[in-house]
């Protein structure tokens, strides 16, 4: 029976002190993390490892005994992903625990090479596993972080544009089911009021998924616009989206949909009593002129 679990539990304070000393001499991202934070993270992690080691289980870290350690590593990874650390920098934080543990193992086994080798082997496996958990958690939280950033960026970049007299367009790019969607939709209604518009085109070419929540947001906006005498046209409804909407059972009867923004614009012009005419210029060739039909 290995003495390693007992040793870690008994000497975790010394190991931690040794670890901190090592980190203070090694290259450290002092620009990204404070000494206090490093200190508290190492304490939390060391306590969690000690508590995991008390179970005697060092090879399988999936069990409840190591839950605290997994959670701690997850939390550390999340905060480091936000702080801008790289994967290897984050994993190195955990891997740098090896040396202090080896030191402790050596102190414990001064005269038994076989036991020494066995404990070093076991502890290196343990730390590798912990580092792997960290790297996975780090990747996951960074993906999540990036996805959220993209999402926010995307919905922010959708201002309402005035296409023509009385015609507004809201091109939406990105997901349409976050809390921000309502804000975006309200900004359209507000713009209808500000510009006294009669037609609002909501272009969903850049929306990857239209599910019932998205449809609900759209329908609510259309109803509200209609209340104040403005028609909405949904453009950018790709065939696969149209088909999916039908299968979902969403009733879009009474909602004007167009495949392309240009079709929607042509219809909007027509609705607001404006026409597009082609005129032949003397030397400039053909150009398109919009004129108001009185």
């Amino acid at each position: 029976m290995s003495k390693l679990p007992e040793m870690i539990n008994k000497h975790h304070e010394e190991i931690r002190a040794d670890w901190l000393k090592q980190m203070s001499t090694a290259v450290r991202r002092a620009d990204l993390i404070s000494n206090e934070e490093l200190e508290s993270q190492s304490r939390e992690l060391m306590d969690a490892i000690a508590s995991g080691a008390r179970s005697g289980e060092l090879t399988n870290l999936d069990g409840p005994a190591w839950g605290q350690a997994r959670d701690t590593l997850g939390a550390i990874s999340t905060s480091r992903a936000k702080q801008g650390f790289s994967t290897s920098e984050t994993a190195t934080f955990v891997l740098s625990l090896k040396q202090p543990i080896f030191n402790a193992v050596r102190r414990e086994n001064p005269s038994d090479p076989a036991a020494l080798f066995d404990d070093i082997w076991k502890s290196t496996q343990l730390i590798d596993k912990l580092a792997l958990i960290t790297a996975d958690a780090f990747q996951a939280s960074r993906e999540k972080f990036i996805a959220r950033q993209q999402e926010e960026l995307m919905e922010l970049s959708t201002p309402v544009v005035k296409l023509w007299d009385g015609i507004l367009a809201l091109p939406i790019i990105g997901t349409l089911d976050s809390a921000r969607t309502q804000v975006v939709m309200e900004s359209l209604l507000q713009a209808v009021v500000q510009t006294n518009s009669r037609v609002a085109i909501i272009d969903i070419t850049g929306v990857p998924t239209v599910d019932t929540l998205v449809a609900q947001h759209l329908l609510k906006t259309i109803t509200a616009a209609r209340l104040m005498g403005a028609d909405c046209i949904i453009s950018g409804v790709r065939p696969q989206i149209a088909q999916t909407i039908v299968h979902l059972g969403i009733d879009l009867a009474g909602v004007i949909t167009k495949a392309k923004l240009s079709d929607a614009f042509a219809l909007a012009l027509q609705r607001t009593g404006q026409v597009v005419t082609k005129v032949n210029g003397d030397n400039a060739g053909k150009r398109t002129l919009l004129r108001r039909e009185e």
Binding site: T209, V210, D211, T212, L213, Q240, Q243, T244
Partner: peptide
């Protein structure tokens, strides 16, 4: 699209 939409719901 159908799969992604179902997953979303």
């Amino acid at each position: 699209t159908k799969l992604v939409t179902a997953a979303s719901e």
